[in-house]
Design a protein around this nucleic acid. Structure first.
Lengths: 143, 143
DNA sequence: ATTCAGCCTATAGCGGCTATAGGGTCAAGG
DNA sequence: CCTTGACCCTATAGCCGCTATAGGCTGAAT
């Protein structure tokens, strides 16, 4: 199948497929006489795997590692699990950060009375005391 | 004060300060005879404001808009509130995405028995049916 | 013959920095 | 006086994961 069909089959854009090939996520496919790329089922399965892992937030580098494990054939469940657990922790950390942020932001917005007042408590709060702790870490008050 | 001192005072890196100047977040300061940048209290306050809003996840463009409001002097509380509410909604959406992701990932990792088994339920699941729910939301990325 | 969708390559751009190269400046110490 | 070292300067390229643009070829239908 041609690249457009593969794109439709996987929900991946044509340009992205070519990009994946350039950076080594997908192997270069065969070419027709007119230089068009020709893909088979193996490519399709591989690309769907990539899409799915990307949707789960794995970086392209992690995807590459997973693919290498699979290609190698001698991976253990533990190898995979390790990558998964690490990523899960990353996602949880980011989510918690975002959650704290959301809380802080919510509080801030609530201080805003709105209307045509030329003063704004929210802006004043932003000009006042630091949001971060004394060590310059990320914000922590939302909760 | 010189750029290094400003950096220490605001918790912002020297290179980042110069970057902010280049993209118009900070106005070009006065220069000493040796071309060194010389900052005053106004710069320091402005930069702290930028840092704080950035920590709250506002994009540099939103920061610019906030700064313009302040500079203009004729902003209303509603103007600010609107930006804040919009951003809060963006953050909430991202957090919810990430939360869904976390759930899916957690389930997936739990299927993994670990150990030296050459099969992995997690990998198999990734090769099987789509991970995203029927709501077809986009995956959350970056912070 | 022309139109149009689809394919090709190469390159630049996004946000928000960070890193590197290759210098100049200035106060302190030997 | 000379070196060391911390600080400053500019300009440019790199990071991630694409996306967009420019400019051209292919192949089927009208």
């Amino acid at each position: 199948m041609q690249i457009g069909e593969l794109a439709r089959a996987t929900g991946c854009r044509v340009v992205t497929i070519r990009y994946y090939e350039r950076i080594g996520i997908l192997p270069p496919p065969a070419r027709a006489a007119n230089q068009y790329r020709i893909y088979g089922e193996a490519h399709s399965r591989r690309l769907r795997f990539v899409r799915r892992t990307r949707e789960l937030g794995f970086s392209l580098d992690e995807v590459r590692r997973l693919l290498r494990l699979i290609e190698g054939g001698d991976y253990t469940c533990d190898d995979v699990r390790q990558l998964g657990v690490q990523h899960l922790e990353d996602v949880r950390a980011r989510r918690e950060d975002l959650q704290r942020l959301e809380g802080a932001l919510h509080e801030l917005v609530q201080q805003c009375v709105g209307g045509a007042s030329p003063d704004c408590a929210m802006l004043e709060a932003l000009f006042a005391e630091p949001v971060t702790g004394e060590d310059g870490r990320k914000p922590a008050e939302g909760a």
